[in-house]
Design a protein around this nucleic acid. Structure first.
Lengths: 194, 194
DNA sequence: CGCGACGTTGATTTGCCTCAACGATTGTGG
DNA sequence: CCACAATCGTTGAGGCAAATCAACGTCGCG
């Protein structure tokens, strides 16, 4: 598996010397995940951060009525984890599953901490990553509070134009917070009214 | 103004030598904010991170219908900022206002970056802060997707027991995402059914 | 082929909102 | 120190966005 994508993602925010790149790459463990295969199950302690090289994963929960709710999608170039569980090392509530056959790179919590000590710039990298993710999540909270379902859908279309065509509708519905039935109706109105 | 609280908050995650404490404290600018006074207005570029020593602030937006939605409360010991604007240095969409007469400490973006260079441990501190905040925000998103208004209220009561009594009901309503009228009804049912 | 997952559409229900009126409390200027 | 306005919380009646339940067509896949 190629490390180009992840090195490129990292070096967007920090500079690494060649030996640092080598060290970093040596800590990454490649893994293939088949479509519909679970990468993490609720109740597990999340042991790593996952970088998606190819394919697409999703993080979701199942509520007490059996309905699924999507916290995040991770197409290629994105990181995904159960942050709560990863940080606290307590059993988490998230499931992480592949939506397509995917190639990922795993960075264990232990190795991530090693990285902070050996290459302090990674402290900065993951700070920036967390901050950007925080901003996106805050925006989503405000959208959920202030926008109608249709407005959230329109926004999703503009923010994640590539995902729209790649994902099953029910996954998008479970992300913006409506039932698949209502999503279908909404979408057909949307197409009519252009 | 006392720096005990903020030093304590920082040293919960990183260790500082005395001269580092001094340097850090020297970068902080005390400010008093009166109740109902705005600390940041939408359209502003957010120039600092704010640590609340005493009192309570809130970050909120006003939607196109004139309704307010609360992103976060910051009682004493908490940080607050328009993270989007602070990071990007673009005009933000948040208002930050004092709910009570408050004492805060300001750390300008410039000084924060200076801190990263002079005391690298602060890179770690703000990484941890961002990660914890991210976890809380992710949890809130999942709650908004999967819980009813009453369940969100119950959860708010257990997670922020002190805020319940300190805040006007309409502020809590604007946080959990219901109208003040519905919040009132919900609360009276809640009291009846224990 | 046949089964299960997905998307669509219809009929009905409901959680929460809207609008409006009214008391209680706070705060503010004369 | 009082009068008055403003803000807040409460309650009622009616409305709407989205959920629920159910039926049905389509497609991909074992």
């Amino acid at each position: 598996m190629s490390y180009d994508l992840i090195l490129q993602a990292v070096e967007k925010h920090i500079n690494l010397r060649e030996e640092e790149q080598k060290l970093f790459a040596s800590l990454l463990k490649p893994k293939e995940i088949r479509r519909k295969q679970f990468h993490l199950t609720e109740g597990d302690v999340c042991p790593w951060s996952t970088f998606v090289v190819q394919g697409c994963l999703r993080a979701f929960t199942t509520d007490k009525n059996g309905f699924e709710h999507v916290l995040s999608f991770a197409p290629s170039g994105w990181w995904i984890a159960d942050m709560y569980s990863l940080i606290s090392q307590q059993p988490g509530h998230l499931n992480i599953e592949a939506l397509e056959d995917s190639d990922v790179l795993l960075l264990s919590k232990k190795d991530q901490e090693k990285l902070y000590l050996e290459i302090p710039a990674f402290e900065r990298f993951f700070r920036i990553l967390a901050e950007n993710s925080l901003v996106a999540n805050q925006q989503r909270i405000m959208d959920n509070l202030s926008l109608t379902a249709e407005e959230r859908y329109r926004k999703f279309c503009t923010v994640y134009p590539t995902l729209i065509h790649a994902l099953p509708q029910k996954q998008i519905a479970a992300y913006i917070g409506v039932t698949p039935e209502f999503f279908s109706r909404m979408r057909s109105n949307f197409l009519k009214n252009n």
